[in-house]
């Protein structure tokens, strides 16, 4: 039900004739303390007013834990509130898929909470819901700026391995460029 609602959420009403930006970004993606990675973000950002938008963002990322590598693709929907200073705050919820490539000398992988999986060689696909908060800053003139930097803490779940009681945390920090000027 959550998934159906989320699809309606992303494809649903509200975009109308709002002015839209397309933003392309890249950033560091750090899962926990020991899993660095990268994320690419393609974003459609319809403006509902001068200071408020409702972006839909497609994230493509990869990070490497000592025991596994993860590639993920997910879709986020949320809001962004701009301030005159160029600062903005945002929030979004998302869902996607993650492919985990285990790199341990075993048929099984266990985490420190005793969750376990008998993994297969190659991609182990699972559902990846997530929640993000964010803070960002428009570089240069806030009215015409096409560049921004951002930090987005993320909480996500790997539903093929752990249940919802055991989330993961990640931090994203990056830069986005607006492909079409407002």
């Amino acid at each position: 039900m959550y998934f159906v609602l989320f699809c309606i959420l992303v494809a649903g009403p509200g975009q109308g004739r709002a002015q839209k930006q397309i933003n392309l970004g890249a950033g560091y993606f750090g899962a926990g303390r020991s899993a660095p990675g990268l994320v690419l973000a393609l974003e459609l950002e319809p403006f509902q007013s001068e200071s408020f938008s409702s972006p839909t963002r497609l994230n493509l990322g990869y990070f490497k834990d000592p025991d596994y590598g993860v590639a993920f693709l997910d879709l986020h929907k949320g809001f962004r509130k701009y301030f005159r200073s160029g600062l903005y705050l945002e929030q979004s919820v998302g869902v996607g898929l993650m492919a985990t490539y285990y790199d341990v000398d075993n048929l099984y992988y266990f985490d420190r909470y005793r969750n376990s999986i008998r993994f297969k060689e190659g991609a182990n696909i699972s559902v990846m819901p997530s929640v993000e908060l964010g803070i960002g800053y428009l570089l240069g003139d806030t009215q015409t700026s096409q560049n921004r930097i951002w930090i987005r803490p993320r909480i996500y779940w790997n539903l093929g391995f752990r249940n919802l009681a055991f989330p993961y945390a990640a931090i994203q920090a990056g830069f986005s460029h607006t492909l079409n000027a407002r």
């Binding site: 420190r112 005793r114 969750n115 249940n163 919802l164 009681a165």
Partner: peptide, 11 residues
């Protein structure tokens, strides 16, 4: 309830 699926003896 869903809490049933969470064991605290996880470490």
């Amino acid at each position: 309830s869903l809490a049933y699926y969470v064991s605290g003896l996880t470490t």
